[in-house]
């Protein structure tokens, strides 16, 4: 005799089920969805969930990657491996090209990460995408805590926090006007630790830079940055080889690594579980500019 307790899902299974429901809902109701794929751990979990949602059929939408020209080569390698295994269609929107064609102005002061926003919005518009899946999580940052699963963007791609649609039960409202699009966040209710538990459980391929490795790094603004011709050292900065790993991946001139010996998924899970500093606070220069940095970038149309 089975009891109600036998019919409980673990928290990971419940999160997975919710995310799969969101993927299917979008594909059923919105015309041209796309998955924003950075090659980072969150976008890989998204891709895994999308794979599960439509199996045994192929992904019913393409992947979109914004290439900053400053991506880690290890991340691009993982991206290509996933695209090949799934037989997915990859659209690359290049920041370099956007600069060359005048869509984005490189004034020498704006980070590549910010120029990504304009490149992204242009790619969404020219391809006619009406829904873009993003890997944002509500636990990441205060401005994200109020983000909807379906985040409505106006025809300038902007987010208005005071004018969001109420979201009840699991009834999502995908109505759009001409020119508008929807950002959809299937990982809204996942935390960083959930992401790592899931990657460890699913045994999916992630970029090697998430694992501890020897790397030549230097310290800037309290962060360890990788040595690179794109990021020349300034006066007084000393390059040294250390054992490090990355907690997030992004523009290599801004994404710091942490000293770590975690070389397996289990060790990473253990490290994340006892971490006392948020992943973005520790390793993302782009979120540190002001207390409201994320809120401002989201309003402009960032991921």
């Amino acid at each position: 005799m089975q009891t109600p307790a036998d019919y409980r899902l673990s928290h990971l299974d419940e999160l997975e089920s919710e995310s799969i429901h969101i993927f299917r809902e979008v594909v059923a109701e919105l015309e041209r969805p796309v998955l924003m794929f950075s090659g980072g751990k969150d976008s890989i979990v998204m891709l895994r969930l999308a794979e599960k949602a439509f199996h045994p059929a192929r992904l019913p939408f393409p992947l979109l990657q914004v290439d900053t020209g400053l991506d880690f080569p290890e991340v691009l390698a993982t991206r290509d491996a996933w695209v090949e295994r799934l037989g997915a269609n990859l659209v690359v929107a290049s920041v370099e090209e956007a600069i060359a064609t005048g869509i984005v102005v490189d004034d020498g002061k704006t980070s590549r990460n910010r120029m990504q926003t304009a490149t992204l919005l242009d790619a969404i518009e020219t391809n006619g995408f009406t829904a873009a899946f993003g890997g944002g999580r509500r636990d990441e940052e205060k401005a994200r805590a109020k983000e909807r699963v379906y985040s409505h963007r106006d025809d300038f791609g902007q987010w208005d926090p005071k004018n969001q649609r109420p979201e009840l039960w699991s009834l999502y409202n995908g109505r759009l006007h001409e020119g508008e699009h929807m950002r959809v966040f299937p990982l809204s209710n996942w935390t960083e630790l959930d992401i790592w538990h899931y990657i460890a459980r699913e045994r999916v391929e992630i970029p090697s830079i998430y694992f501890a490795h020897r790397r030549r790094v230097f310290e800037r603004d309290g962060m360890l940055l990788t040595e690179s011709p794109h990021n020349p050292c300034r006066d007084g900065e000393v390059v040294a080889e250390r054992t490090v790993r990355f907690r997030t991946v992004g523009d290599l001139t801004l994404t710091g690594c942490v000293e770590s010996a975690a070389s397996t998924l289990e060790e990473i899970v253990e490290e994340v579980a006892v971490a006392r500093v948020t992943e973005r606070g520790a390793t993302r220069g782009d979120d540190r500019f002001s207390e409201a940095a994320m809120e401002d970038r989201k309003k402009e149309g960032y991921f």
Binding site: H11, K142, A143, A145, K146, P161, Q164, N189, T191, E291
Partner: peptide, 26 residues
């Protein structure tokens, strides 16, 4: 406190979602 517009006005304008876990439950 989430958004800057709320901090400036000292109010909360919307539902905010928070996460925590103990060994028993998320």
């Amino acid at each position: 406190d989430g958004l800057r517009s709320e901090r400036e006005q000292g109010i909360t304008i919307d539902v905010a979602y928070r996460y925590f876990a103990t060994p028993r439950r998320k």
